[in-house]
């Protein structure tokens, strides 16, 4: 299974919904429109010649500079038989970060989606129990978004322009 083959079969099936095919450090990566994520993951799972059936990782990233697609959901999939890994990214607008849940495909996605919701505020539509998992329930912000500073912004004693802390 070569990268070209994966790109070909996915482009034939999903057309322009999949794009930006590239290999980064041994992992073939591409983007998918958030509306097609479940269809794509299901196809990757069920198509015999692809058989990406192991969800290694699911997480989020916040790119404040990408206007209109600030949040990114990243899936790492693994075909254990052919030993091939791929990465699928889906970009969402921060104003309405909705994406369909993949819990029905992968039980492992349950907590990983909750974690991504907890830290980035991604709304996984169809998730059976989308509540915070690591942070306290009362928290009213999503701490891994870049605009939330790690340190208390009212403190002045830690201002150190020279070394950027």
């Amino acid at each position: 299974m070569t990268n070209e083959y994966i790109q070909q079969i996915l482009s034939d099936k999903f057309g322009t919904a999949v794009s930006n095919f590239e290999e980064h450090f041994g992992i073939f990566s591409f983007d998918v429109l958030p509306s097609e994520n479940v269809a794509l993951l299901q196809f990757l799972n069920e198509e015999e010649s692809l058989a990406f059936r192991f969800l290694t990782d699911l997480t989020g990233v916040h790119f404040p500079d990408r206007v209109g697609e600030e949040l990114c959901v990243v899936y790492h999939l693994h075909n254990l038989v052919a030993n091939k890994r791929i990465r699928v990214r889906s970009y969402l607008p921060i104003a309405q970060p909705d994406i369909a849940s993949v819990v029905n495909l992968y039980s492992a996605a349950n907590w990983m989606e909750r974690e991504t919701y907890d830290f980035f505020g991604v709304n996984f539509v169809g998730h059976p129990n989308l509540v915070r998992i690591l942070n306290v329930d009362e928290m009213n912000y999503f701490p891994m978004r870049k605009e939330y500073p790690m340190e208390d912004p009212t403190r002045t004693d830690k201002d150190d322009e020279m070394f950027g802390r």
Binding site: D57, V61, N110, W111, M112, G164
Partner: peptide
Amino acid sequence: GFYLISDGGRAPFRLHFRRPCFIYYQ
């Protein structure tokens, strides 16, 4: 797993740990 995105700075832009315990404990 260590999922690291670097934007060329001194610190990671994003670092995610794929923790096996967190996933299988479900």
